[in-house]
């Protein structure tokens, strides 16, 4: 399979006052297209930081991240924002839907950054909602949906611009077991039937069961990989 993401000697430090914290140290990682990777590890191990770097939300302190052929260090500001909008779908633990918009309009948001016509945007959003099984909730606002339904809307929003990579930060962290399983099954389906490359950060071993590979991290370093 072709390589989609490569991390080369990636380190990340944060400065708080006079203290410098090493959050990631010399990460080397290769992720292939079509992979479903789970990042696991204790809190503070650097999982979310690595996910954010791969998703182009932040820059490493040193090292390179090549994602979809682009070295993210070469992109900043507007260019990086545009790159994210075209290449990454984000799924957050607390869904991060806009409460004043309907499910349909929330899903449509990333398409506002494209040149698609309004009709086409609505059509694509409807298709994304159909994939996650929420066609009948299109006109509902987030406050009128359950947690699982909101996360489905968030996944539809991540899908709608057809990005190669979905990065999911604790996508089931706020859901009960049954609902979490439904979301994980949905992600597995997107990986298997729609060819999406997926990286999830999770504390849940059952969530990791749905992944093709599991990476363990601790204290900013990669420890082991299981398949």
């Amino acid at each position: 399979m072709a390589q989609l993401v490569e991390c080369r000697e990636v380190s990340k430090q944060y400065t708080r006052g006079k203290e410098t914290l090493d959050v990631l140290s010399g990460i080397n990682l290769s992720i292939e297209k079509g992979d479903f990777l789970a990042l696991m590890g204790p809190s503070g191990s650097g999982k979310t930081t690595l996910l954010n770097l791969i998703g182009g939300l932040d820059h490493p302190s040193s090292g390179d991240i090549i994602n979809g052929g682009a070295n993210l260090n070469d992109l900043s500001g507007r260019a990086l924002a545009k790159w994210r909008s075209e290449n990454i779908g984000f799924v957050f633990q607390f869904y991060n839907l806009l409460p004043v918009l309907t499910a349909q309009r929330n899903v449509e948001l990333p398409l506002l950054l494209t040149r698609l016509s309004r009709t086409q945007r609505q059509k694509n959003a409807a298709t994304a909602l159909e994939i996650v099984g929420l066609t009948d909730r299109a006109r509902h606002r987030p406050g009128e949906l359950s947690g699982g339904q909101q996360q489905r809307v968030a996944i539809a929003r991540a899908l709608v611009a057809d990005p190669e990579l979905l990065v999911c930060d604790e996508p089931t962290g706020d859901l009960d077991r049954d609902t979490a399983d439904q979301i994980l099954n949905l992600l597995e389906l997107l990986n298997r039937d729609h060819g999406k490359t997926i990286i999830i950060v999770t504390h849940d071993p059952k969530a990791a069961d749905h992944a093709k590979h599991v990476l363990y991290m601790d204290k900013g370093e990669l420890l082991a990989t299981t398949t």
């Binding site: 924002a81 948001l109 990333p110």
Partner: peptide, 14 residues
């Protein structure tokens, strides 16, 4: 804050 950050994460500019 989170709403605005989400929009920026999705690709909306500053």
């Amino acid at each position: 804050t989170v709403e605005i950050a989400t929009l920026r994460a999705l690709g909306f500019g500053g």
